[in-house]
C-alpha cells in the first residue's frame, strides 16, 4: 500500500463498504448470468458445456426477434414522444416562470411520479378502456357511436402509459440544462439581429442539448426494460423483452436462454447509451 498516499487510502477505505456491497449484490449476479448464457440447458439441470446455441437462438428465433424489435420500437417512440412533449414544459418553467415559483412547479411535476406505479398504469387502462373514461365521455357527448378500440390492449396504450410514467425524468434534466444557460447570450443573439426563433434555434437549443440527451437516455433505458406496462395494459398479449426474459427464466425454466436474452438486452442498452454519450461529447465540444 506504500504507493498510495494518505488521501487515497482514506478515500479507498471509505468507498469500500458501498463498493463491496455493489460487487456482491450486482456484479456477482451479472457475471453469473453471463456465465449461464454460454451453458447448455438440460432437462432439470444446467449442463456445464460451453455453447453459443443460446445466442444463436436469440438472433434467429422469430419470436425473440419480434419481441426485441418491438421493445426497441416502443422505447424509441416513448422516448421521442416524452422528450418532445417535455421540452416545452422545461422551457416554460426555466424561462417564463418567476424564480421564486420554479420550485413549486417542479414539485407539481414530480408529485404524480411518486404515486404507486402499478396503480398509475392500471388507471391508464381505466382511462383508455372499452368502457373507459375517454370512450364513455365521447359516446356520452354523442361524438362517437361505438367505443374506440384502437387505444386499448395495443402498442398505442403502452406508449401513452410509459410516456406518462417517465415524463418527470425527461423534464428535470432538460430544465437543469436550460437553467445553466447564460441569459446574456440570448440578449446578444437578439442584439446581433437574430429573430426570436433563430436565437432559440442557434443558441438555446444547442446549449440545452446535453440535457436533452440525458433525458433521452433516462427515459429510454427503463422503458426498454419495462415489465409492468405490457403485462397490465397489453394483457400479456404484447410482451416486451422483460416479459420474455421472465418467461424463459421462470415459467419455461430455460435459464441459459433467459440469461442470453438478458445479456443481449444489456448490450443493446449499453450500445444505445454509448451512442448518446458520444453525441453528447460532440455537443460539448461545439460548446467549447
Amino acid at each position: 500500500m506504500a504507493k498510495f498516499d494518505a488521501e487515497a487510502r482514506a478515500g479507498l477505505s471509505l468507498i469500500a463498504p458501498p463498493f463491496l456491497y455493489a460487487l456482491l449484490i450486482l456484479a456477482a449476479p451479472i457475471l453469473t448470468i453471463l456465465a449461464y448464457s454460454f451453458l447448455t440447458d438440460g432437462y432439470l439441470e444446467i449442463l456445464r458445456d460451453f455453447t453459443w446455441v443460446n445466442y444463436a437462438q436469440v438472433f434467429t428465433d422469430p419470436i425473440v426477434r419480434t419481441v426485441m424489435l418491438r421493445s426497441l420500437m416502443v422505447a424509441a417512440i416513448v422516448t421521442l414522444a416524452t422528450v418532445l412533449t417535455a421540452f416545452p414544459i422545461a422551457y416554460y418553467v426555466s424561462f417564463m416562470v418567476r424564480p421564486e415559483k420554479k420550485a413549486m412547479w417542479l414539485f407539481l411535476i414530480t408529485i404524480p411520479f411518486w404515486t404507486s406505479y402499478l396503480i398509475r398504469v392500471f388507471l391508464w387502462k381505466v382511462i383508455l378502456g372499452y368502457n373507459g373514461v375517454v370512450n364513455s365521455s365521447l359516446t356520452g357527448l354523442g361524438i362517437i357511436d361505438e367505443p374506440l378500440t384502437f387505444i386499448l390492449y395495443n402498442i398505442n396504450a403502452i406508449v401513452i402509459t410509459l410516456a406518462h410514467a417517465y415524463a418527470p425524468f425527461a423534464i428535470l434534466p432538460i430544465f437543469v440544462a436550460l437553467e445553466k444557460i447564460d441569459r446574456s447570450l440570448l440578449e446578444a443573439g437578439r442584439d446581433l439581429g437574430e429573430s426570436r426563433a433563430m436565437t432559440f434555434w442557434r443558441v438555446t437549443l444547442p446549449l440545452a442539448m446535453p440535457g436533452v440527451i440525458a433525458a433521452t437516455l433516462i427515459v429510454f433505458i427503463p422503458t426498454i426494460g419495462d415489465y409492468v406496462t405490457p403485462e397490465v395494459i397489453g394483457g400479456g398479449k404484447i410482451p416486451m423483452i422483460a416479459n420474455l426474459i421472465q418467461v424463459q427464466m421462470l415459467a419455461l425454466d430455460n435459464r441459459p436462454l433467459g440469461s442470453a436474452l438478458a445479456v443481449t438486452a444489456m448490450v443493446v442498452v449499453a450500445l444505445v447509451s454509448l451512442l448518446f454519450l458520444f453525441l453528447n461529447r460532440r455537443f460539448l465540444k461545439v460548446r467549447q
Partner: peptide, 24 residues
C-alpha cells in the same frame, strides 16, 4: 470507475437486477 459502477443500478433495467439476483 468505482463510482460509475455503484451508480449503475440507476440505469440498469430492474428486471435484469431482479432476474440475475434471483438466479444466484
Amino acid at each position: 470507475g468505482i463510482m460509475g459502477f455503484i451508480m449503475l443500478p440507476m440505469v440498469l433495467p430492474e428486471i435484469i437486477v431482479a432476474m440475475s439476483l434471483l438466479v444466484v
